[in-house]
Design a protein around this nucleic acid. Structure first.
Length: 386
DNA sequence: TAGGCCATCTGGTCCT
DNA sequence: AGGACCAGATGGCCTA
């Protein structure tokens, strides 16, 4: 696939070093990493090297911060003092809380005198200004956090599990997004249709059990079944984090239905299994499970295993939505259009490989691509087509 | 009731 | 000086 990647990089007008390896062991602060990650697509394929962000990198992150704090010991002392003051002063911002600063020198008492430039006397005007500044800063901080939450909401909508009634927590959203990006980039890298179970495992890596259940539920796959299946299959061949590209028979929750009974015919089983799973994953085909009270209809980009996804915009478009999803393109539904080729790439050129028929898939003209590189997708499809 | 998640306030730090 | 970003503290809400 090396040449393929090069062609893909060309099609996307990316730097030649697409998918460069990230030196392992380079742990950086979470915010820096996220910024870099989302601004530099070339790093996506190695996201998994950062697996365990939630735990390991957090501690590393904290370690760094602790080091920082050590270097700023004086600052934290001040901080603790001010914290205590504010606690004693109560929550009321209007209660001349700033005057406490003013009295700082007098109330120091047993505390050693602080060095450095002496604080200027807080005049009434300064106090007022300080209060106004604080109030404005609070408002800005609220707005900032609301923006952050809006962005997280948008992220929730494009990861493979979305429910308005059972929202993923912030941390789980980020973890799932990371896994999702990894899984998609892996699909792009290999150019093969992934094994569904491994795909779900990849998505769920590092997620809490409730979230794993939620994701598996959203994907219409009984998590216990797939976990059990995993353990039963040749002792860890599908170990955590693996992203096996070959398929094998597995049991999904829907296999109990009359047309999905396990049989000795592995091909038939595989076919039926995929049929059920993908069927549901693609949003469609009148699956009754969608009426489950626990999950809303799969408004998430269904499994997006075809490398594309449709964003769900229900309700009025917010300015942010308009801003963030400005680009959209509709694939032609003409016979023999490029979408077919792209579709075949991930589902196998036979069109029935793994039991997937093109008619089970939402037509591309119903799927909106939203990507800042939207113009490049034509070329990307050309690549798929060739 | 403990624990998880969240919103908010707050002060510190960095940058313009 | 002021804004952006960050992280700690706190309290509320919800659920097992």
């Amino acid at each position: 696939m090396g040449a393929g990647i090069t062609a893909l990089a060309d099609a996307l007008k990316l730097e030649p070093a697409f998918f460069p390896p990230i030196p392992s062991g380079d742990i950086e602060p979470r915010t820096t990493m996220l910024t870099r990650l989302f601004s530099d697509p070339s790093l996506l394929p190695d996201v998994q090297k950062y697996s365990g962000w939630g735990e390991d990198s957090d501690s590393d992150d904290n370690k760094l911060k602790d080091d920082d704090r050590d270097a700023q010991d004086d600052g934290s002392e001040l901080r603790d003092d001010s914290r205590t003051q504010s606690e004693h002063a109560g929550e009321d911002d209007d209660d001349d809380g700033a005057e406490e600063e003013d009295d700082g020198d007098e109330t120091e008492g047993d505390r050693p005198k602080k060095r450095g430039p002496k604080k200027r006397k807080m005049t009434q005007a300064r106090i007022e200004r300080s209060k106004v500044r604080r109030i404005k800063a609070n408002a800005r901080e609220r707005t900032r956090m609301h923006d952050l939450n809006s962005a997280l909401d948008n992220l929730r909508k494009v990861v493979p599990c979305y429910s308005k009634t059972q929202k993923l927590s912030k941390i789980e959203t980020l973890r799932l997004a990371k896994n999702y990006i990894w899984a998609l980039s892996e699909i792009l890298r290999s150019g093969k249709r992934p094994d569904l179970v491994s795909y779900v495992q990849t998505l769920c890596k590092g997620l809490s059990q409730p979230t794993t259940n939620l994701v598996a539920g959203c994907l219409q796959l009984n998590s216990r079944n797939f976990l059990t299946e995993q353990q039963c299959q040749d002792g860890g061949r599908y170990g955590a984090g693996s992203f096996s590209m070959h398929s094998y028979p597995y049991q999904c929750a829907r296999l109990s239905s009359p047309h999905c009974q396990p049989s000795s015919n592995s091909h038939a089983l595989r076919t039926q299994g995929y049929c059920s799973a993908y069927d549901s994953l693609y949003g469609g085909s009148g699956s009754p499970e969608y009426n489950s009270p626990e999950y809303e209809p799969p408004v998430s980009p269904p499994l997006c295993i075809n490398g594309n996804f449709s964003l769900k915009h229900q309700g009025p478009a917010s300015p942010e939505n308009e801003k963030g999803y400005h680009y959209s393109m509709h694939y032609s539904s003409l016979p023999g259009s490029r979408s077919t080729a792209a579709h075949n790439l991930v589902f196998g050129s036979s069109g029935t490989r793994g039991g997937i028929h093109s008619e089970n898939v939402l037509p591309y003209h119903d799927m909106h691509l939203h990507h800042e590189r939207a113009p490049a997708y034509d070329e990307l499809n050309a690549f798929f087509h060739s």
